[in-house]
Amino acid sequence: MLDINPVWQSASALQLRRKTLRMPNHDRRQSSVDSDSVDDMVAKHQKRAKARETVTHLQQKFFHLSDEELRSGLASLNAEEVPELAPTIRRLQTAASERNSFVTMLDDKKFDRELVIALGKSVVLPQSDAGYVREKYIQNLTTKSSRKRARETSLKIQKAYPNLFALERDWLTTLQNSKSSGPMKSGGASLLNFRVLFFGTLIAYQIAKLFLMD
């Protein structure tokens, strides 16, 4: 410790002192640099790199992995070691615990198959990719019946699989609103309403005239 020049390496000197005297580091705002030795740092960063790789692998192959592979992959992830990935890890853990629910939903004819597939992708993929999947699904809701089916499926998911619903609450809530789900419609609707009114009035007038003549 005496060989260290404190002008530049005071942190190393103090770290060595703590290690030798087995004293805790009370610095809550410590950066990881000061908290560990170089070896610890290297080990920690290797773990982080590995965790990132595992997360990417799980996101890409989530539905292709066996239960055992998925379980061991998730078990190897420690959210505390990769704080920036903690929300993603938690999300994957929830999705993994509900993975069989997707199979059940796909077997059930009452659920919209496309929505279940999109939901499966959306809960595991990175945010921007998931956004793309969600938007693609919404763009395909071109008919009233498809929007109705999406709405019903969303409501069923909310009721039967609340944990899954919580992961995609925002999107599934959008689907429950038939007006906002689906591609945006042109302004022809109001014109159509006018035409319906006009011709409706005309027909009603003709019918009324027939009755009056009688």
Binding site: R28, R29, E84, L85, P87
Partner: peptide, 24 residues
Amino acid sequence: TGDGPTATAEMARCLDEIARDAHG
């Protein structure tokens, strides 16, 4: 008020929550 991995995790959680809550 925070720093270090715990604070980073908390900030990541908050931003994740905001980024996924368009209606909110």
